[in-house]
Simulated assay, not measured.
Amino acid sequence: MKTLNIDTIQTIKYFPMIGIVKETNRPPGGMTSIRKIAHNAFLNSKKDVLEVGTATGVTAIELAKLTACNITAIDIDDNNLSVARERAEKENVAHLISFENRDATDTKFENKTFDMVFCGNVTSYFDDKIKAIKEYDRVLKDNGLIAAIPMYYINKPSEKLVSEVSDAIDVNISPLYKKDWVDFFNLPGYELVSCEDYAFDNISDNGVKEYVDIIFKQPHLESLEFEVRSALYSRYSYFMHLFRTNLSHMGFSLMLLRKVSSPTEPELFTARALVLE
C-alpha cells in the first residue's frame, strides 16, 4: 500500500487490484457455485484438491470449511497469496490449505497427484487454454474430477467492450461461447458428470455503488490519504461498472468432468422431475 500514488493507481489492472482492496474474489456464481461443486463432487477430508488461480483464497477457504479436504491453492500474484493466507488463518482452516506461487500451465507437481482440479473460470485468462487443460489432466488421478466454471457470451459484445475488458484484466480476450468451452474440455478419456447453465443477473448502477462502498469501508482502505483513497475508489468503481456491463452479455456453466479408464455407454432412459398436483 505504501507504493500507491495518484499516478500509479491509474495504471493498475484488475487482478493486482484484487489484492490491494482485499476483494472477496469468487468464481462465477459465487458461494453457491462452490457449494454445488463440493456437493456434486462428494468432496471429503480424504480428498486432495488443486485450486488453480486462487486469487485471495475464497474458494479454497470455503471448500476447506465445507469438506475439510486438503487443498493446494496456486496463483502467480504474491500479494493475493498473502491476503489468502491471512484469511485462511482468520477462518481457522490454514492447516488444510497450502497457498503457493506456481504457473498453472507448468505446475511442477508429480503426475496423478490430485483427486480434483478446481479451475473455476481462470482458464479463460490463459492464451494457451489447451496447454492449461492438459496440465490439469496430467496432475489429476484416475477417476478424479475437473471442476470448471467457464464464463461465455450469450449475446455478442461490441468490439469496444471486449477491448476495454481486455485492457482491464491485461489479457487479450476474444469472445467465446458455450460451444467453445465444450470443445476445450472435450478431452479423450473424460466423461461429463454434470453441467448446469446460468445467466448473470443484471445489476443496477446503485447496486454497483453499494458494493464498492462496502469494499472501501475496510480499515486498510479507510486509513489511506484522501486523494489516494479517492483515486483507488474511482479506479475500482470503473472496473466494477465495466464488468457489470460485460456480464450482462454473459452466462456460465458448472461443469464436472471425470477422468475415466473405460468410458460407459450413454444412458437411454433419462428422467425429469415429477410435479404432483
Rank of each mutant, 00 (worst) to 15 (best):
I97D: 01
Y211A: 08
D167G: 15
Y190F: 11
I215H: 05
D180L: 06
K178E: 11
Y211F: 14
M151P: 00
M151F: 09
L187D: 00
F109W: 09
F118D: 01
C195Y: 14
N111C: 10
K141N: 08
S166R: 06
E91S: 14
I215P: 04
K209I: 14
D205K: 15
Q218H: 07
K179N: 12
A147K: 05
K134C: 12
K129Y: 05
G189R: 12
N101E: 10
A147N: 05
E91M: 14
D142H: 09
G189A: 12
E91T: 04
A148P: 01
A132Q: 04
F184V: 10
N121D: 11
S158D: 09
E135R: 06
S158E: 07
P188D: 10
N92H: 13
K156D: 11
I169D: 11
F99E: 01
I97R: 01
A88E: 00
I74Y: 01
S158I: 07
S82M: 06
E210V: 13
V171I: 09
P157D: 08
D201E: 13
V182P: 00
E110Y: 13
E210K: 11
A199H: 12
V212N: 06
N92T: 09
K108C: 10
E89Q: 15
Q218N: 09
S98L: 06
A168E: 03
S158P: 04
Y153F: 15
A132P: 00
I97Y: 01
N121M: 07
I97C: 04
G120T: 04
G144F: 12
F114G: 01
E89S: 14
F216N: 02
N206H: 12
I133W: 06
N101R: 15
N121A: 10
I215M: 10
D213Y: 08
E100R: 10
A147D: 03
Y153T: 07
V171L: 03
A132H: 02
R138N: 02
L140T: 03
D170Q: 11
L140C: 02
N111P: 05
C119W: 06
F216H: 03
D167H: 14
K90N: 12
V212K: 08
E89W: 09
I76A: 04
T113R: 10
K156F: 09
R138Y: 07
Y125H: 13
D78M: 13
I149Y: 08
L96A: 04
E86P: 00
A148W: 08
C119E: 15
Y198F: 14
N155F: 13
E86W: 08
P188I: 09
N143P: 03
Y153P: 00
I149P: 02
T123D: 01
N206A: 11
L192Y: 07
V208Q: 03
K160V: 10
V208D: 07
E100F: 00
D77Y: 05
D142A: 14
F99A: 00
P175L: 08
F184Q: 11
R102L: 13
I214F: 15
D137S: 09
I76F: 00
K179T: 12
Q218T: 08
L161W: 07
I154F: 08
I74V: 12
I215Q: 12
E86Q: 15
I169T: 06
I133G: 02
E191M: 11
I203N: 06
P150L: 09
Y125E: 04
P157V: 05
N143R: 12
F99W: 03
K141V: 09
S158K: 11
Y152K: 05
N206I: 07
K209Y: 13
V93S: 00
N80I: 00
D183R: 15
S194V: 14
R102E: 04
I154H: 10
